[in-house]
Amino acid sequence: MTSCHIAEEHIQKVAIFGGTHGNELTGVFLVKHWLENGAEIQRTGLEVKPFITNPRAVKKCTRYIDCDLNRIFDLENLGKKMSEDLPYEVRRAQEINHLFGPKDSEDSYDIIFDLHNTTSNMGCTLILEDSRNNFLIQMFHYIKTSLAPLPCYVYLIEHPSLKYATTRSIAKYPVGIEVGPQPQGVLRADILDQMRKMIKHALDFIHHFNEGKEFPPCAIEVYKIIEKVDYPRDENGEIAAIIHPNLQDQDWKPLHPGDPMFLTLDGKTIPLGGDCTVYPVFVNEAAYYEKKEAFAKTTKLTLNAKSIRCCLH
């Protein structure tokens, strides 16, 4: 018999989150649709729960009410004593943790798909938090293969000092899905179709896995975050240069030392320094102006996964 890495157990509980950011409308629209008619997301033997994560922000069509829901799922915020004085999103995070967690427990949901849009030209993107997770690498390989020839990129946010504390991190297997470009507060049919297909293929993978299909060893190309880059700023902290036209919409493309990065209003080009080629992502993302992030630098690498098969009882 072929030796293989056996994944822990079959997958039982899956959640699909929309509206973690209330103005990213593809996930909101799909989740609302699936709450009314969820036939397309159901798979035999699998509990799939669509869920609106930040209903107040969705109602106002804004990213958040008090603070970013997708950055506060750490033990400090989840452990705060519940009171009306807490920011709305912290209270909501505790409610979500109660419903789908608790985080880092045996009772937490197996998989959470968190649906997002970006204003950046990132196409279909899967966000991975753990480079050693054979199950998710296999799932992402399946999704990428199923979507081809449509490109699907994998963004690895594993980093020693950049801690995200994402909404989906309460699950055993957290999956971020990011599709763009799409303006905030807008629905685009092409973007919706791409996100819908990503979810379909992900659920198909889980179904095949649960039925005992063995997935042979595989490898995927990923883009691992190195650092986030702020806009150049003046002495008052105001933005002093904008994304250069040569960099705009060039997510995932190589940016070499000396290539144009920013452009000042008086026409001066600010190039990339250093001696390493990087791959920019979230270029000129609207939501990241407040976070002082013009783009993120990534490096390209390959992740390998062992063969996996479900432990059938």
Results as ranks from 00 to 15, higher is better:
residue 2 T to E: 15
residue 3 S to F: 07
residue 4 C to E: 15
residue 4 C to T: 14
residue 5 H to E: 15
residue 6 I to L: 14
residue 8 E to L: 14
residue 9 E to P: 14
residue 9 E to F: 07
residue 11 I to T: 01
residue 11 I to D: 04
residue 11 I to Q: 01
residue 13 K to F: 00
residue 14 V to F: 02
residue 15 A to G: 15
residue 15 A to K: 06
residue 15 A to R: 02
residue 17 F to T: 06
residue 17 F to L: 09
residue 18 G to Y: 05
residue 22 G to D: 07
residue 22 G to I: 08
residue 22 G to N: 07
residue 23 N to I: 06
residue 24 E to N: 07
residue 25 L to Q: 14
residue 25 L to K: 15
residue 26 T to L: 03
residue 27 G to C: 05
residue 27 G to V: 03
residue 29 F to H: 15
residue 31 V to D: 06
residue 35 L to I: 10
residue 36 E to D: 12
residue 37 N to R: 07
residue 39 A to M: 12
residue 40 E to R: 04
residue 41 I to S: 02
residue 42 Q to K: 11
residue 42 Q to M: 10
residue 45 G to Y: 01
residue 45 G to C: 03
residue 46 L to A: 01
residue 47 E to V: 10
residue 47 E to T: 13
residue 50 P to C: 08
residue 51 F to Q: 03
residue 51 F to M: 10
residue 51 F to T: 05
residue 52 I to P: 01
residue 52 I to M: 11
residue 54 N to Q: 00
residue 54 N to M: 00
residue 55 P to S: 11
residue 55 P to R: 10
residue 56 R to F: 11
residue 56 R to W: 11
residue 56 R to S: 12
residue 57 A to H: 02
residue 57 A to N: 01
residue 60 K to D: 13
residue 61 C to L: 12
residue 62 T to G: 11
residue 66 D to R: 02
residue 66 D to N: 10
residue 68 D to P: 04
residue 70 N to R: 08
residue 72 I to F: 10
residue 73 F to N: 10
residue 74 D to L: 10
residue 74 D to C: 11
residue 75 L to M: 14
residue 77 N to V: 12
residue 77 N to G: 12
residue 79 G to V: 13
residue 80 K to H: 12
residue 84 E to M: 13
residue 86 L to K: 11
residue 87 P to M: 11
residue 87 P to W: 08
residue 88 Y to L: 08
residue 89 E to K: 00
residue 89 E to H: 03
residue 89 E to W: 02
residue 89 E to S: 04
residue 91 R to G: 14
residue 93 A to R: 10
residue 94 Q to C: 12
residue 94 Q to R: 12
residue 95 E to P: 04
residue 97 N to T: 12
residue 98 H to R: 14
residue 98 H to T: 14
residue 99 L to Y: 13
residue 99 L to A: 12
residue 101 G to I: 01
residue 102 P to Y: 09
residue 102 P to G: 10
residue 102 P to C: 09
residue 103 K to T: 11
residue 103 K to I: 11
residue 104 D to T: 12
residue 105 S to K: 12
residue 105 S to D: 12
residue 107 D to S: 12
residue 109 Y to D: 00
residue 111 I to P: 03
residue 114 D to E: 08
residue 117 N to W: 03
residue 117 N to F: 01
residue 117 N to G: 04
residue 119 T to W: 04
residue 120 S to W: 02
residue 122 M to Y: 05
residue 123 G to S: 01
residue 124 C to W: 04
residue 125 T to G: 08
residue 126 L to K: 04
residue 126 L to C: 03
residue 131 S to T: 08
residue 131 S to I: 07
residue 132 R to Q: 15
residue 133 N to E: 03
residue 134 N to L: 06
residue 136 L to R: 04
residue 136 L to N: 03
residue 138 Q to V: 05
residue 140 F to C: 13
residue 140 F to P: 05
residue 140 F to N: 06
residue 143 I to C: 02
residue 143 I to A: 01
residue 144 K to R: 08
residue 144 K to N: 01
residue 145 T to F: 06
residue 145 T to Q: 15
residue 146 S to R: 14
residue 146 S to M: 15
residue 146 S to C: 15
residue 149 P to I: 04
residue 150 L to M: 13
residue 150 L to F: 09
residue 152 C to F: 04
residue 152 C to W: 05
residue 152 C to R: 00
residue 152 C to E: 00
residue 155 Y to F: 14
residue 157 I to A: 15
residue 158 E to S: 06
residue 158 E to P: 06
residue 158 E to Y: 02
residue 160 P to G: 11
residue 162 L to V: 14
residue 162 L to W: 12
residue 164 Y to N: 15
residue 164 Y to I: 12
residue 165 A to W: 09
residue 165 A to Y: 10
residue 166 T to K: 11
residue 167 T to R: 09
residue 168 R to V: 08
residue 169 S to G: 12
residue 170 I to S: 06
residue 171 A to V: 07
residue 171 A to L: 04
residue 171 A to E: 00
residue 173 Y to D: 01
residue 173 Y to M: 14
residue 173 Y to P: 06
residue 173 Y to V: 09
residue 174 P to L: 10
residue 176 G to H: 15
residue 176 G to S: 12
residue 177 I to E: 03
residue 178 E to I: 15
residue 180 G to F: 02
residue 182 Q to Y: 05
residue 184 Q to N: 15
residue 186 V to N: 06
residue 187 L to Q: 03
residue 191 I to C: 05
residue 193 D to K: 10
residue 193 D to T: 10
residue 194 Q to P: 06
residue 194 Q to D: 06
residue 196 R to I: 04
residue 199 I to Q: 01
residue 201 H to C: 10
residue 201 H to P: 04
residue 206 I to D: 02
residue 208 H to F: 13
residue 209 F to V: 07
residue 211 E to D: 12
residue 213 K to P: 01
residue 214 E to P: 08
residue 214 E to K: 08
residue 215 F to Q: 00
residue 218 C to A: 07
residue 218 C to Y: 06
residue 221 E to R: 00
residue 221 E to N: 05
residue 222 V to S: 00
residue 224 K to I: 03
residue 225 I to Q: 15
residue 226 I to G: 08
residue 227 E to I: 05
residue 228 K to P: 08
residue 235 E to A: 13
residue 236 N to R: 12
residue 237 G to Q: 07
residue 239 I to V: 11
residue 239 I to S: 00
residue 240 A to L: 08
residue 240 A to V: 09
residue 244 H to R: 00
residue 244 H to T: 03
residue 246 N to G: 09
residue 248 Q to Y: 06
residue 248 Q to G: 02
residue 248 Q to K: 05
residue 250 Q to G: 12
residue 251 D to R: 02
residue 252 W to F: 15
residue 254 P to G: 04
residue 254 P to A: 11
residue 254 P to L: 01
residue 256 H to T: 09
residue 257 P to L: 02
residue 258 G to R: 07
residue 259 D to P: 03
residue 260 P to H: 01
residue 261 M to Q: 06
residue 261 M to N: 01
residue 261 M to C: 12
residue 262 F to A: 04
residue 266 D to A: 08
residue 266 D to P: 00
residue 267 G to L: 03
residue 267 G to K: 06
residue 268 K to E: 12
residue 268 K to W: 00
residue 269 T to V: 14
residue 269 T to S: 10
residue 269 T to F: 03
residue 270 I to H: 00
residue 274 G to K: 01
residue 274 G to E: 06
residue 275 D to K: 09
residue 277 T to P: 08
residue 277 T to F: 02
residue 279 Y to P: 05
residue 280 P to S: 00
residue 281 V to N: 00
residue 282 F to S: 10
residue 282 F to D: 06
residue 284 N to G: 15
residue 284 N to W: 00
residue 284 N to Q: 04
residue 285 E to G: 09
residue 288 Y to H: 15
residue 288 Y to K: 13
residue 289 Y to D: 15
residue 290 E to A: 11
residue 291 K to W: 05
residue 291 K to V: 08
residue 292 K to W: 07
residue 292 K to T: 09
residue 292 K to F: 08
residue 294 A to L: 05
residue 295 F to H: 00
residue 295 F to T: 00
residue 296 A to T: 15
residue 296 A to F: 08
residue 296 A to R: 11
residue 297 K to T: 12
residue 297 K to G: 00
residue 298 T to H: 06
residue 298 T to C: 15
residue 298 T to A: 14
residue 299 T to S: 10
residue 299 T to F: 09
residue 300 K to T: 06
residue 301 L to W: 08
residue 301 L to E: 09
residue 301 L to S: 07
residue 303 L to V: 11
residue 305 A to F: 04
residue 306 K to G: 14
residue 306 K to V: 09
residue 307 S to A: 15
residue 312 L to S: 15
residue 312 L to Y: 15
